[in-house]
Design a protein around this nucleic acid. Structure first.
Length: 272
DNA sequence: AGTGCGACCCGAACGC
DNA sequence: TGCGTTCGGGTCGCAC
């Protein structure tokens, strides 16, 4: 379940292998992965483009091409593999980009939840999905004033609010639990009951957790790998998410519940 | 406008 | 053992 740190890790890994390569062919075996434009237009437009740079925006990988931005969202389990052009198609490989070094760069996604968009470069940031994204976790304009203003009138649990990509973009279910644990805030508390000081704490802990996770190469949960042979190490550092047993801080038992339909772990003594 | 929930998917985990 | 059923997870889009 790639969140920001996993997407950054994938981005850095891919850069080493595809920067400067030209896309000479594109094969799509599961149409729903192509969110925009339609599949035939997508293929037609992307063939002949060179990969000039790769960055991230929220949980999107952003491939800068000559005339377009290719956005790829990995959703749950999207990943990439490099194969020989005539290697047999794996069951879970759904989109192939043939590169001009005769390598087949393949998008692999067991759940078929991943999405790709090919947008005109000039106005890509004013179009969906990019126009809906909020601030990056390390944006200098992400302040306690900003966060407080966005959440103080909301009746949703703070856990759910932090998953809203239009406020802060890049936080997912795992780091959300970690951030709230470190901030000593219950995931169930309503946005309207979070103080400005606690907003400051959330922002500081978001930066600490995500920066540290990026240093560790992301979290490997289930089948997440950034690309062949790359595994994150951050799962060794998780304090609360996915834990059975006792709170690492007070030793009392960790609560496992559901908030807004998401599996949620917290300590009801340390998080108020 | 804000909120809630089903749909999209399929492997793993679970129940019988 | 083997079958059928349920669950989870990020986001969109529809319903209220």
């Amino acid at each position: 379940m790639p969140e920001k740190p996993e997407v950054v890790t994938v981005c850095n890994t891919l850069k080493k292998q595809v920067l400067g390569k030209k896309i000479t062919d594109c094969l799509v075996y599961w149409d729903n992965i192509i969110a925009y434009p339609d599949v035939s237009q997508f293929k037609k437009n992307i063939i002949g483009e060179e990969i000039l740079d790769i960055t991230t925006r929220g949980k999107f990988l952003v491939f800068e091409l000559n005339h377009y931005l290719l956005l790829i969202h990995l959703r749950m389990e999207g990943k990439f593999f490099f194969r020989k052009v005539d290697d047999e198609k794996n069951k879970h490989e759904h989109v192939f980009f043939t590169l001009d070094n005769n390598i087949s760069f393949r998008f692999h996604d067991v759940r078929k939840f991943g999405k790709m968009y090919l947008l005109d470069k000039e106005d890509a940031y004013s179009k969906k999905p990019l126009c809906d994204l909020g601030l990056e976790y390390n944006d200098s304009t992400l302040t306690s004033d900003y966060l407080y203003q966005k959440i103080h009138h909301k009746n949703l649990p703070i856990k759910t609010i932090l998953l809203d990509q239009s406020i802060i973009t890049g936080i997912g279910n795992i780091y959300d639990d970690e951030i709230l644990f470190l901030s000593h805030i219950s995931p169930l508390r309503k946005g309207s009951m979070v103080s400005k000081g606690e907003c400051e704490s959330i922002i500081l802990n978001t930066r600490n957790v995500l920066d540290r996770a990026i240093e560790m190469g992301g979290t490997t949960i289930k089948s997440f790998t950034s690309s062949e042979g790359v595994h994150g190490l951050f799962q060794n550092e998780l304090s609360i998410h996915g834990k059975k047993g006792n709170c690492p801080s007070c030793g009392r038992s960790i609560i496992r519940t559901t908030v807004g339909g998401r599996g949620t772990y917290y300590c009801k003594y340390c998080q108020k």
